[in-house]
Design a protein around this nucleic acid. Structure first.
Lengths: 242, 242
DNA sequence: GCCGATTTGTCCGTATGTATC
DNA sequence: CGATACATACGGACAAATCGG
C-alpha cells in the first residue's frame, strides 16, 4: 500500500520549498498546472496545498495564486517542537547527540486528583516513568510519562532506558495518531532544580500533552520540563473567517 | 454571502461537543447520517470533521466511526492562546475586563539586525508600538508590535490606545489570514521588570509571531511578553503517517 | 474463519461562484 | 470584458478497516 497521492505531492512541494526551488514570495505553479504535473485532479492538489498552508509554508491568494511564505529560520535554540515527535525523533531531526537517564519507574493507580489532571479514569493502572534527557553532559529536559498499563503491556525498565515509542510502534504495533499540547512557563520545583542544569534560571518551560493511539484510546499523559532558552515551540495558524 | 456550508457544520458540531451533547468517548453520527442531517455531500461533512480533528475535538477511526476526544479543561490560567486572536478578542472570549496603556509610539526604519529578526526588508518604515495590557490593576502582558507603514497607513496614537486590529479590519478593510508563532520562556529584561507585575518571577513567556494579510504581505511582527502562569498555549497535532 | 453490512479513506470528474489581472 | 486562478460543493466509485452473524 503506497503512500496516498496527496501526501506524496505535499512532501514533494514541501521539499522544493525547503531546498529553495520555490523561494519566499514566489508563487507556486497554478493548481491547474500542478494537476497536470502530478497527474491527478484539482481536489488532490488542493489537499496537498491545504497541508502546506496549515504548516505555514504557503498562503493561497484568491484569484492570484499560491504564494510561498516560508522563511528559513536560523534557529539558535536546541529544540524546535511542532507537531508530534518523540524526544528521540526531535533529537535526530535536530541532529543532536543525547543520552537518557532513568530516574524512576513505578506502577501506580490513578486517584481522583490525577484523573482530573491527566484525563485517565480513576483506578486505572499506570506506568509512571521519569527520565532525564542529557546533551553534552547537561540535563536539559525532565520528562514525566504516564502510560496506560492495559495498552502498553510489557514495558520494562530496559525499554524505558531506550526509546519507549520505538517499542510501542515496532513491538506493539501501536500507531500514535493525535495529541494535544499545552505550553506554560512555570517556576522551577525542587525536583527541577535537583535534576536539571538550570544555570541561573529558576523557571522551566512546561509542555504537557495527551496522546491517543489509533484505537482512540488515550494511552499516555506526558509532561516535559525544559530548561528555558533551549526550546522553541512553533505553530502556524489560519484565521477563522468571520 | 453566507458562511460556507462546511463552516456552519463545523461550528454546529463543535458547539454540540462543547455543550456536552456529544461527550468524550462518544461516537458522532456516521458521516452518512450527518450528510442527511445537514443536507450536503459527504465531502462537505468530511471537511467539517477535518477541522474538528485538527483542533483536537474528534478522532476519526477507520471502519468504526468518529470518536469525540474533547476533555473540558478546568483552566486556571487567565489566557488560552491558540489560533490567531488579537488580544482584545482573546480577552473577550475569556470574558475578561482589561485596559491598555500605551508606552511608546515611534516610526522607525528596519536595519539589518531588525530585518533578520523580523523578516521585514531593510529600510522599510515601521510603526513601533509598545503597549501594556492590564487586568484588575495588574500589568500582565507587554506587547511590542511592528507594523509595516505602507500597509497600515493612518495608524495613530489614538488608535493604538484602542484596538489596532479593529482599525485594520474595519477601516482599512484588511484581512488577517495567517500567522506563525514561536513560544519560548525567557529571562525577564529590565524593561519587563519595569512594566510588568512579575511578582517573584524573574522570567516571562515570550510569544513572537509574523502576521500576513490577504494580499500575502507580512505586515506585522509582534512580540508579547506574558507574566507566566497566566497563559497557556494550546495546540493539537496530528501525526504524519509514515 | 468467512461473508456481508457499515463506516471511514482516497480519488475522480464536474459545475458554479468569486477575486484578480 | 474575458481569461486565469482559487473556493465551494456536488455526486460517484472503489479501497480498507471494523464488526456482527
Amino acid at each position: 500500500m503506497p503512500a496516498p497521492k496527496f501526501e506524496q505531492i505535499y512532501k514533494q512541494i514541501k521539499t522544493e520549498i525547503e531546498t529553495g526551488i520555490y523561494r519566499n514570495g514566489d508563487y507556486l505553479p497554478s493548481e491547474h498546472s500542478l494537476t497536470a504535473r502530478f497527474d491527478c485532479t484539482r481536489n488532490t492538489v488542493r489537499r496537498a496545498l491545504a497541508m502546506l498552508e496549515a504548516e505555514g509554508y504557503v498562503l493561497p491568494l484568491h484569484g492570484r495564486g499560491v504564494q510561498v511564505i516560508y522563511i528559513p529560520q536560523s534557529d539558535k535554540s536546541l529544540f524546535t517542537i511542532g507537531g508530534i515527535e518523540s524526544f528521540a525523533e526531535a533529537a535526530e531531526r535536530n541532529n543532536i547527540k543525547y543520552s537518557t537517564k532513568l530516574i524512576s519507574f513505578e506502577l501506580i493507580k490513578a486517584d481522583e486528583k490525577l484523573s482530573l489532571q491527566t484525563g485517565f479514569d480513576i483506578g486505572e493502572e499506570l506506568y509512571l516513568i521519569k527520565r532525564l534527557r542529557i546533551f553534552n553532559g547537561k540535563a536539559i529536559i525532565y520528562d514525566t510519562n504516564m502510560f496506560l498499563r492495559s495498552e502498553t503491556e510489557g514495558l520494562t525498565v530496559e525499554i524505558a532506558k531506550q526509546s519507549i515509542y520505538q517499542y510501542l510502534e515496532r513491538e506493539l504495533h501501536m500507531t500514535i495518531t493525535t495529541s494535544r499540547r499545552r505550553v506554560a512557563a512555570e517556576k522551577a520545583t525542587r525536583e527541577d532544580k535537583r535534576y536539571l542544569d538550570l544555570g541561573r534560571a529558576d523557571f522551566v518551560l512546561s509542555v504537557t500533552g495527551q496522546v491517543f493511539n489509533s484505537r482512540g484510546i488515550m494511552f499516555e499523559y506526558t509532561q516535559s520540563r525544559h530548561v528555558p532558552d533551549r526550546v522553541t515551540f512553533i505553530e502556524s495558524a489560519v484565521r477563522q473567517k468571520i
